[in-house]
Design a protein around this nucleic acid. Structure first.
Lengths: 340, 340
DNA sequence: ACTGGCACTCGCTACAGTCGAGTGCCAGAG
DNA sequence: CTCTGGCACTCGACTGTAGCGAGTGCCAGT
C-alpha cells in the first residue's frame, strides 16, 4: 500500500524528534512540535499503519514510537535532504587540513577531523595500494645480506620491508637490481605487477637470480598478501557518549570489531561508485556491528577513487548531517591529494 | 604502627579474593578460603586496623572490605611474589613473535599478544628515535622540486617525509646531498644530530645551500618536533569486559585518554631503570586514568632500552600475573630486536 | 476523512517489609 | 595480652503493592 504524504511526514517527524531527544515520541508531542495540521488522534492512526508496515515500533505498550532500521532506511532514501554544512564546519575542515606535510599527516588529521565533526567513530583508509602506481622503488643496503626495500607510490604511500638475502651481495649488484626493478615496475599499476615481477625473476642474469628471487617474494608478499591496506581510526571515545543508551548495553563487540583491520576494510573499503553508502543497523554484514550505522564514501584526487573513509555510530544518528560531513571531508581530502 | 604478619596475610588474602571474585570480601569467607588459623572475629579486628590505616575500605556499612589504592600498593611492594609464566603462556609468546618480518610487524604482534595474554589494554612504543642511531638517510627524487627523505635507524625504524624544495634541483645534486648527510649523520645518535645538521647547512657550498636548508628543517622537524615517537595500541575491547563494574560507570574518559599519543607516551615512555613500573589508581598523573592501573617496563636489545611497553587495566587486576607477563614479553621482544 | 472522548495498558516511582551478610563490641577463656 | 564466641545492630538487596501518567486503540460523531 502506498503511504500517503502525511504518513511520510509523520515518519520524518518521528525520526527527527527521536534523533534529537533520544526518547520514544508520542502522538501528542509530535503535533505540538511539528505543524502537521491534524490532531493527535489522526497521527495515531497514521502511526498504527507505519507500525504495521514495519517502519516504527513501540518499545513498550505504553510508550511512544521509535523508528526501526527500515524506518531509517526510508527516511534516508526519500525523506531527507542533505544538510548544507555550516560555515563554521567548512572553516574547521580547511583549518584542520591545511598544513598537512605528508600522507601520514593528511590521514591522521582527516580521521580526527571526521571524528570531531560527526562526534562519532571515524575510519579512514590509506590510499589503496591496489589503486596506486609505483613511483619509485628504492633498495637501501643495511648489511651485505640485508636490504631495505622502500616503495613509494604515486598516491604518496610509502611502504618498506626488510629483505633477507640468501647470500651476500656486492654494492654494484644492488644498483643493478634497483635499476631493473624500477625500469620494469616504475609507473605501473600495483595491481598489475605480479606477472611483471615474475618476468623479472626469469629475465635476470643468473648471478643476480637468487637475490632477485627473494626480492620478488617480498614484493609480492608486501603488495598482495600483507598489510596491503592500512587504516586509521579515531573517536572511539564517542561510542561511550550516549550513556550506553545506544548500543544496548555493551561496547565490547563494537570495540572488538573495530580492532580488526579486515572488518574496518569491509566497512569503508568497498568503494565502487563515487556515491555515499549508508548501512543501517541490520544491513551491516558484520554481526558485531548490527545495531550501528555506517556512512562511508570514497575519496581520491579528481574523479578517481583511491580509498574509502567514513564514520560509524548508533542507528539513531543525524543522517543528513553525517552524510554531508562525510562527503565534504572526502571532497577536501581529494583536493588535497590532487595537489601532488 | 607496624602491621604484624597476620594482618599482612589478611590483606593479601583480601586482595587475592577481591581480584578473583570482584566482590567485597567478608571475614567469614576469608577464614574459609584461606588457612589463616584464626577465627572470623580475630580477622575482623585485624580488618578494623587495616581500614584505619587506609589499606582497605567498606563500600557500605553492611558489606565486606575492598582494597584501596594504598592497599594494592602495599600488596604489590611487599606481599606478592612474581608468578612464573605457565608453559602455555611461554609457548604463546614464542609462537606469536616468531615469524615477524620487520619492525612494524614485531610491534603489532607484540601489542596484540600483550592484550591477549593479560586481557587488558596493551600499549607498545616503537623504538624511540631519541635512543636510535642513524643507519642511513635516503633521498628519492619525486619531481625536480620534491624529494622523499627516508631515514632508517639502527633500531629498524623507518621514517619518511616529503621535502618541498624552494627551487628545482638537478639529479647530481641530490646525489651530493645524500652523500653529505650520510657522511655527517650516519651512525650518530639521533639525539645528537641537531648541532650536526646545523653545521651541515653552514658548510655546504652556496649552490646547494637553499636545498640543504629546507632539508635540514625537515630533518629537525621530523626528529625533534613531530611524531618522533610512535605508539601501537590494542585490546581496548577488554575495557568493556567487566560489565562496567570496574571504571565506575563510563569508559569515555579512558578511551579519550587512550587516543592521545602524548598521554600514552607518558604512560609507558618514561623508562629510566630497567625495572618494571606499576602505577596504581590515583598514582597516575593523567586525571582521566585515575581509577586504572598501569604496568609498564622498558625493552630493547641486550641490556639497553629503546622503548617502553605495558598494559592498562582496572586497579582490581592480577598484579603478579600481569607484571610477569609484561616482563616476559619485553624480554622476548628485546631478544628479537637483538637479532638485528 | 478527521476529531474528541474514553477505557485500557504498562512502565516508572515510591514505600513498606523482609532477609541476610557483615560488622563492632564485649565478656570470657587461654 | 590475645584470641574467641556470642549478640545486637546496620544497611543494602530484593519483593510486593499501589498510584501515577504517558501513550495507545477504538468508536461514535461531525
Amino acid at each position: 500500500m502506498g503511504l500517503d504524504d502525511r504518513k511520510l511526514d509523520v515518519l520524518r517527524a518521528i525520526v527527527e524528534d527521536y534523533v534529537a531527544t533520544q526518547e520514544p515520541v508520542g502522538s501528542k508531542a509530535l503535533v505540538e512540535r511539528h505543524q502537521l495540521g491534524v490532531s493527535p488522534a489522526t497521527v495515531r492512526n497514521d502511526m498504527a499503519v507505519l507500525e504495521e508496515e514495519g517502519y516504527i515500533r513501540q518499545p513498550h505498550t505504553s510508550a511512544g514510537r521509535v523508528p526501526t532500521d527500515r524506518g531509517y532506511r526510508l527516511f534516508v532514501d526519500r525523506l531527507s535532504r542533505v544538510k548544507p554544512l555550516t560555515p563554521a564546519e567548512r572553516r574547521a575542515i580547511e583549518r584542520f587540513l591545511v598544513g598537512a606535510v605528508d600522507l601520514d599527516d593528511v590521514v591522521h588529521r582527516t580521521v580526527r577531523l571526521l571524528a570531531q565533526l560527526t562526534r562519532q567513530v571515524a575510519v579512514v583508509q590509506y590510499p589503496s595500494l591496489a589503486r596506486s602506481s609505483v613511483r619509485h622503488l628504492e633498495l637501501v643496503p643495511i648489511s651485505t645480506t640485508r636490504l631495505m626495500l622502500v616503495m613509494i607510490a604515486d598516491t604518496g604511500r610509502v611502504e618498506q620491508r626488510l629483505v633477507e638475502l640468501p647470500a651476500p651481495i656486492p654494492a654494484d649488484d644492488v644498483i643493478d637490481l634497483r635499476r631493473m626493478v624500477n625500469e620494469k615496475l616504475g609507473g605501473t599499476k600495483l595491481a598489475d605487477t605480479p606477472p611483471l615481477v615474475q618476468a623479472l625473476v626469469e629475465e635476470v642474469n643468473p648471478q643476480l637470480r637468487p637475490a632477485m628471487t627473494t626480492l620478488a617474494t617480498v614484493l609480492l608478499e608486501t603488495l598482495v598478501e600483507r598489510h596491503e591496506e592500512r587504516i586509521a581510526l579515531a573517536g572511539t571515545a564517542n561510542l561511550a557518549r550516549g550513556g550506553l543508551l545506544d548500543f544496548q548495553g555493551s561496547l565490547r563487540p563494537i570495540l572488538e570489531a573495530l580492532e580488526e583491520e579486515v572488518v574496518l576494510l569491509k566497512l569503508i573499503g568497498e568503494v565502487e561508485p563515487s556515491t555515499t553508502r549508508v548501512r543501517i543497523g541490520d544491513e551491516n554484514e558484520i554481526d558485531n556491528l548490527r545495531g550501528t550505522s555506517v556512512v562511508s564514501t570514497g575519496y581520491g584526487p579528481g574523479r578517481t577513487i583511491v580509498g574509502g573513509l567514513g564514520v560509524l555510530g548508533p542507528t539513531r544518528m543525524d543522517y543528513p548531517g553525517t552524510i554531508a560531513t562525510v562527503r565534504a571531508v572526502a571532497r577536501y581530502v581529494g583536493e588535497l591529494l590532487a595537489q601532488n
